[in-house]
């Protein structure tokens, strides 16, 4: 049986990779939508994910009702909604509109459709927020201590609300919500990857958050499996283990600049003006209190283990960006050589 899969957000890295890997299967017809056409996924080692010719691209702004026409005319049975912006979009309101209104349009079109049987939505572990009242490890059923009140996390909470509503109204459709940890990998461009590639890393004085990553290869595979098999439910998707921010900066060999929390926020505002970094309040919260989730449920459901854990995903990111020259370690080795 051939599948027809619609993938949103193919103009961005993860969307393009998911579309490419699905289109590689001759039994699957893939239609990718976005406002910009997909480019070949970057990075030398992305497993030959050249965009296959069989990938059809339709230019659609998710905020418009055009998507309904695409779904109605193409006999689509699976919708993979990857297009969730973590920012920094040109403006916060544009990002919010894209994430929230975009999802509403996608789900509205799915609800109308008589052919859609499976919907996969990309969400984020940011829905759990980040606060000193958090349990150390979140499972899918734990309620957040302080739900995110702004930014990407809040968008994702709203998106998940719409998805739950949709699943209630269309119980015949298998709905999968995937809460991804921060993505890491050669081609990922996110506020956090941009943070780690700065020459000096500002940190919140007196805090050392636990961070958790998922490698982009694993994220793509999780999305591929969810798009081709029925796995209804909500699942955390994160590499096992955690890295402390202090471990991350030591592995990168980067100097840090610890600043008190209020100054960190101010710095964030300035950086936001430069449009290079995103130090939104939620990012500040993550950099203070961190977050970890349990993805046992996903592993059990897929019957598959992620290839990378948090540490190896991060190390691969460092290698791929050439961030391997660890000066403090080199100095230490030289000194230790003298002592020996």
């Amino acid at each position: 049986m051939t599948h027809t899969v619609l993938v949103t957000g193919v103009g961005r890295h993860v969307g393009a990779r998911v579309a490419a890997v699905l289109a590689g299967d001759p039994a699957v017809r893939v239609i990718g939508v976005d406002t910009v056409p997909p480019t070949s996924p970057r990075g030398e080692r992305d497993g030959g994910a050249q965009l296959p010719d069989s990938l059809e691209f339709v230019r659609v702004d998710l905020r418009s009702p055009d998507l309904a026409r695409v779904i109605a005319t193409a006999d689509i049975d699976t919708v993979v909604h990857v297009s969730l912006l973590s920012g920094p979009a040109r403006s916060r309101s544009a990002m919010k509109e894209h994430n929230v209104i975009g999802t509403m349009q996608v789900l509205a079109a799915c609800q109308r459709s008589g052919t859609v049987r499976r919907v996969v939505v990309r969400s984020t572990t940011a829905v759990y927020g980040s606060s000193p009242l958090d349990p150390a490890v979140y499972t899918e059923s734990t309620d957040p201590a302080e739900p995110p009140s702004s930014g990407y996390g809040k968008d994702a909470v709203e998106v998940e609300g719409f998805v739950r509503g949709f699943a209630r109204r269309r119980p015949d459709v298998a709905v999968t919500t995937l809460r991804f940890a921060n993505l890491m990998g050669p081609g990922v461009d996110s506020p956090l990857t941009r943070f780690f590639t700065q020459p000096v890393l500002p940190t919140v004085l007196g805090f050392d958050p636990r961070l958790q990553f998922i490698h982009e290869d694993d994220a793509v595979e999780v999305l591929r499996r969810s798009a081709t098999e029925d796995h209804p439910g909500t699942f955390n998707a994160a590499g096992s283990g955690v890295l402390l921010l202090s471990q991350c900066v030591r592995r990168a060999g980067r100097p840090t600049l610890p600043v008190p929390a209020p100054a960190f926020r101010l710095l964030g505002e300035l950086a936001r003006g430069l449009e290079r970094l995103d130090f939104s309040p939620e990012q500040v919260a993550l950099m203070s209190h961190g977050r970890a989730v349990d993805s046992t449920r996903l592993r059990a459901e897929l019957g598959w283990n992620l290839t990378y854990d948090t540490a190896s995903a991060y190390d691969d990111f460092l290698r791929s960006r050439g961030l391997t020259g660890n000066l403090p370690l080199a100095v230490f080795d030289a000194l230790a050589g003298l002592v020996r």
């Binding site: 150390a136 490890v137 050392d208 283990g241 402390l244 991350c248 900066v249 592995r251 349990d294 370690l329």
Partner: peptide, 10 residues
């Protein structure tokens, strides 16, 4: 080098 283990509780 940051090459040490920390469990999920930190």
């Amino acid at each position: 080098a940051g090459e040490y283990e920390v469990d999920e509780f930190g």
